[in-house]
């Protein structure tokens, strides 16, 4: 009896260690993805990190159902996006937004100012997009994702992703031409 319980306990420890190793691999692989998704909505580094962290904690709690890599990433993308949107809605009073600080450093203050203005226009245009177009254009420009990757992440048909990408680009161009 003791031998059986010892073997069972040993097996459980092994299973838990295996699960934790798998999760660690997913965490390292997907941390930037989750952060950037949150950042694309919130554009505030600290908020984006908090949201991504919350998404990872939720993923960890459900990891026994999310062991498949594609399934994990798709779930993480959707969860992070949803959490970021919720945070944005509950934090409308925030005035100062951190803009793209990681872009190539500008040689002069004037260049930096121009780059900031361009980025601001771009984000305004992205924010003006409907949510279903916004998530597609953001994901398509992240981590070398192609149309098939975006379709898999959002559980959408490839044709739908293509048409949404086309529409999103068209609206962004219109918006940017109008504001420049």
């Amino acid at each position: 009896m003791h031998e059986y319980t010892d073997r069972l306990a040993g097996r459980l420890v092994a299973v838990n260690a295996e699960l934790e190793q798998e999760f660690e691999a997913r965490l390292v692989e997907s941390s930037t993805l989750a952060f950037r998704i949150a950042f694309s909505v919130l554009r505030h580094r600290q908020d984006a990190e908090e949201v991504a962290q919350e998404a990872f904690v939720k993923a960890y709690r459900r990891f026994s159902q999310l062991r498949d890599r594609d399934r994990f990433r798709a779930w993480l993308v959707r969860m992070t996006w949803r959490l970021a949107i919720d945070r944005q809605r509950s934090d409308r009073r925030r005035v100062a937004r951190e803009h793209d600080q990681e872009a190539a450093p500008s040689p002069t203050a004037a260049d930096e100012l121009i780059a900031r203005e361009r980025a601001e226009h771009l984000w305004k245009a992205i924010d003006a997009l409907p949510e279903k177009l916004r998530v597609v254009i953001v994901l398509a420009n992240m981590e070398e994702h192609d149309v098939a990757d975006v379709a898999r992440l959002l559980s959408l048909p490839t044709g739908t992703v293509k048409s949404r990408l086309f529409l999103a680009r068209q609206r962004l161009k219109e918006h940017l031409q109008w504001t420049r």
Binding site: F35, R36, S40, R45, D100, A119, L122, W123
Partner: peptide
């Protein structure tokens, strides 16, 4: 797309 990629090139 190039502009969006540059805007999204932020690391944690």
């Amino acid at each position: 797309d190039g502009e969006i990629r540059r805007a999204l090139a932020v690391d944690p």
